[in-house]
Design a protein around this nucleic acid. Structure first.
Length: 293
DNA sequence: TAGGCGTGGTC
DNA sequence: TGACCAAGCCT
């Protein structure tokens, strides 16, 4: 099965998006670049449904990068709530500070300037440049990678890490026109999020089912290397999460409370030290911790 | 580059 | 019911 005709793919995906796009607060003409940027940080590994309320509260409190930059990192971590990976809150705060310092408080439109910000990698820089500024960029997130793996390459899942060949495919498929390219980026992501999903894709209602190489090949099962699992029970991650939950809920936390939450001494001490080293926690007195003031 | 890093929902 | 998954980044 050959790769589908690019124009047919474009037309089908763009037409589908025109009808089925979700209305999200960080989309549409009224969304500011800052709103887009905040959403991209929050959506790194966190589902849309959980991001929505936190994103709204965040923008109400800090409508601009300068507002966040003027507040403490601890407040950012507290507002982050239970989105997970709280270091993202730290990085978003640091990015806001950098935007004030280097870009007069305005989210920069340049991919390179965006990429230089803390917590911004290739995906996030491309996404902000594309979604907030309408530029033409390859936006390769997990959704787009899965859509291209299936429709173009004919495999159920993409490789564990982005390959050169994969990037070439995405680049070759990017529409020439800037505005169309930006819509293509968000439309392919949306298709992956709503239809071409990881576990039970809705091929019956997919606009490109008749163009899809994986479909044409009879849905061959994934044969690549095993995909990375995430250990959880008993890990440092769980321990750190437990401690951070305590710290978010109170002005400060005693060592007795931490000990009750995580009895294993060695691991508890290691995680406490790690959280302090990461800037997520401060030791305010011997045996008492708090979010950074 | 592989592994660490939160949290909760789904089937 | 316990894997698997969710708009990744950093070291």
């Amino acid at each position: 099965m050959d790769a589908p005709d690019p124009r047919a793919l474009h037309d089908a995906v763009l037409d589908w998006y025109d009808v089925h796009a979700r209305e999200l607060p960080w989309r549409g003409g009224s969304a500011t670049p800052w709103s887009v940027m905040v959403s991209e940080f929050m959506l790194q590994q966190t589902p849309v449904a959980r991001v929505l309320p936190v994103h709204a509260a965040w923008l109400e409190r800090w409508p601009t990068p300068a507002g966040l930059a003027a507040d403490s990192t601890g407040e950012a971590v507290r507002m982050w709530g239970r989105l997970g990976y709280p270091r993202r809150a730290l990085r978003l705060h640091a990015a806001a500070v950098a935007i004030v310092d280097r870009h007069d408080g305005a989210v920069p439109p340049s991919y390179d300037d965006l990429l230089a910000l803390p917590g911004v990698g290739d995906y996030t820089a491309s996404a902000i440049a594309s979604f907030a500024f309408g530029q033409r960029h390859v936006v390769l997130d997990t959704n787009v990678r899965r859509v291209l793996a299936r429709t173009v390459t004919g495999t159920e899942f993409p490789a564990p890490a982005v390959t050169r060949a994969e990037r070439d495919v995405a680049t070759g498929l990017l529409p020439d026109d800037e505005a169309t390219a930006a819509t293509w980026a968000v439309a392919t992501m949306e298709l992956g999020a709503l239809v071409c999903t990881a576990r039970q894709p809705s091929c019956g209602s997919c606009p490109v089912a008749d163009l899809c190489a994986w479909h044409a090949a009879g849905f061959p099962a994934y044969e690549g290397p095993p995909r990375r699992g995430q250990a959880w029970a008993g890990t440092d991650r769980q321990c750190r999460g437990r401690i951070m939950a305590l710290a978010r809920e109170a002005d400060s936390v005693s060592s007795a409370r931490v000990e009750a939450a995580w009895p294993a001494t060695e691991q508890r001490e290691r995680c406490l030290a790690g959280l302090v080293a990461d800037g997520l926690l401060t030791q305010i007195t011997p045996g008492r911790w708090a979010l950074p003031r």
